[in-house]
Amino acid sequence: MEFGVIGDEQFVMGFKLLGIKKSKQIANNQEFEDYLIDMFKDKDVGIIIIQPEYYKNLSSKTKLKVDTSLKPTVIVLGEKLSDILRDKIKHVIGVDLWGN
């Protein structure tokens, strides 16, 4: 399986230096969301690395998919654990373990 990267020029360049081919350079939020949805359909991509600035502006439907998808898994580089996962921990066991 491969890595996928979506973000602005500098974000993507660092990973391109490692040879990651499935990378998309984007200019705005809509492009980011469109490319992200496309990358979800790519079966060779197992991990998608994205920027927190664009993650925050995703639609709620896509955000939910990003937070809950296991294959591919999306990692927001530079962002603390998503609120959804943190809320889920609180909901399931009743304690905010992440904050301790």
Binding site: L70, I75, K88
Partner: peptide
Amino acid sequence: TVEEYEKVLEYVAKAVEAESTLKKVL
């Protein structure tokens, strides 16, 4: 720079494994 990004990719894999495990167990 490439060496530093190689480390980043290694930690990305570890973080993904840890987070996915957490999601599944939850």
